[in-house]
């Protein structure tokens, strides 16, 4: 649990920092093509400069840099043998729940409003989904006095958590494939 949290949050943090650096670099030199702009679809230029990229009035990666740091630290602390009170886990649950909603809003905007995918953002989506599943299943298992059917459902979710994450990935990958199909198909030799 601790290792998974730390590794996932670590990748998320790297992506958020990279995105922030690219953004500053573009502000310094507006003619610069960011390293993450590969073609018209895989492009952080169009995504970074959209209004959605500053959903709260400041650049989104700021949220990621702070949030992923907290999760990374929590994971390392768990690895080091720390034990947290229930309200700490509840706080983490609030955080990953906010993250999963935010990421899906961004995914919708990216696919259907902006019409481009930014590679670093994809990394953030890809780590947020397992973080949410992991933390949520972990917390549900700690809830005392669950009725037996709910308890069994939680156990099944826990056993199949990898499959849940994989299914979730495939769902989003399918939407991205479908949305830009006419473009992807032109890339084939």
């Amino acid at each position: 649990m601790g290792a998974a949290l730390a590794v996932l949050a670590g990748f998320g943090l790297l992506a958020a920092v990279a995105l922030m650096i690219e953004r500053v670099a573009v502000l310094v030199d507006p003619t610069r093509i960011p390293s993450c702009t590969l073609n018209p679809i895989l492009s952080c230029s169009s995504v970074m400069t959209s209004p959605q990229a500053s959903a709260f009035g400041f650049p989104n990666p700021v949220v990621g840099i702070v949030g992923f740091t907290v999760v990374l630290t929590t994971g390392v602390a768990v690895l080091a043998g720390a034990r947290f009170t229930r309200w700490y886990w509840a706080g983490l649950q609030a955080g990953v729940t906010f993250a999963i909603v935010f990421v899906h809003w961004l995914a919708f905007q990216s696919l259907y409003r902006i019409g481009a995918l930014c590679p670093y953002c994809l990394v953030v989506w890809a780590v947020t989904i397992p973080l949410f599943v992991l933390v949520t299943v972990h917390n549900l298992r700690q809830v005392p006095g669950l009725p037996p059917p709910a308890r069994r459902a939680v156990d099944v979710a826990h056993e199949y958590r990898t499959a849940i994450v994989v299914g979730w990935y495939l769902l989003i990958a399918t939407l991205a494939a479908q949305r830009f199909w006419d473009y992807w198909i032109t890339l084939l030799p």
Partner: peptide
């Protein structure tokens, strides 16, 4: 192999199959 992993692999396999058919 755990059941979760097996299910994951089946899902990925189906997705790859669907992708190939779509292409």
């Amino acid at each position: 192999m755990s059941r979760s992993l097996r299910l994951s692999l089946i899902l990925v396999g189906l997705a790859v199959l669907a992708l190939v058919v779509a292409v």
